[in-house]
């Protein structure tokens, strides 16, 4: 039979629920795949506990290993801006509602204000600082400047990172895909049309360059 799968394979699926405890019948009733014997028993892997006072956090920031003690309540954005002085991502709404704090974690665009720093343990975090500099800008950064896709510039790092995540995934995105990629990024100055233009232009230059 043609069995479709996405993401993690079925074998791993619900691996932690011990077959002995839950029973194949229960799983079947739940419409869940039956477990295989080698999945083993659950409840044995223990629990990691990071006390409120803080615990060790390791992550990769713009290609460099970062290791530090961090309170659980510290968000990724606060870690970047307040602890590490990496201030490109902006704190605008602090509720995931504007996209100004967008960074890329393991290839995905995220609102860093709504992630705990510890959510990123062991992950690769990429910020606006990591993708280019005024001397050697990323194509998106260059085109944002060239097309004037920015005014006050406070939303710009978030816009650029949302689009970077898109261009990393799709070399030749449609205008609709571009609009979709920045659909969670609010600009108060009103730069949208030129953001679309800059993104298309950057996509062309990246696509053409390879």
């Amino acid at each position: 039979m043609a069995e479709e799968r996405d993401g993690v394979s079925r074998r791993q699926f619900l691996k932690g629920v011990s077959a002995s405890a839950l029973g194949a019948a229960a799983l079947a009733r739940a419409g869940l795949p039956a477990l295989r014997a080698e999945d083993g028993a659950g409840g044995t892997t223990g629990i990691e506990r990071i006390p409120a006072s803080g615990g060790k956090l390791d992550l990769t920031l713009n290609g460099k290993a970062v290791s530090l003690a961090c309170e659980p309540r510290t968000t990724l954005l606060d870690l970047l801006r307040q602890r590490l002085g990496v201030t490109g991502a902006k704190d605008v709404c602090d509720r995931g509602a504007c996209g100004a704090c967008t960074v890329i974690v393991d290839g995905k665009p995220v609102v860093s204000c709504m992630l705990l720093a510890h959510d990123c343990s062991g992950k690769k975090v990429e910020t606006i600082e990591g993708i280019g500099s005024p001397e050697s800008p990323h194509a998106l950064q260059r085109e944002f400047a060239r097309c004037d896709a920015l005014q006050c510039g406070f939303c710009t790092p978030g816009m650029v990172m949302s689009l970077k995540a898109l261009l990393d995934r799709e070399r030749t995105p449609s205008v609709e895909a571009i609009k979709g990629a920045v659909s969670g990024n609010i600009c108060r100055c009103g730069t949208y049309p030129r953001v679309f233009e800059a993104a298309q232009s950057a996509a062309r230059s990246i696509g053409g360059g390879k």
Binding site: L14, G42, G43, I47, E48, I50, P51, A52, S53, R73
Partner: peptide
Amino acid sequence: MNAFDLLRPRDIET
């Protein structure tokens, strides 16, 4: 946010 402990289990039963 208030300070809190973060618990991270790796399996459902835990």
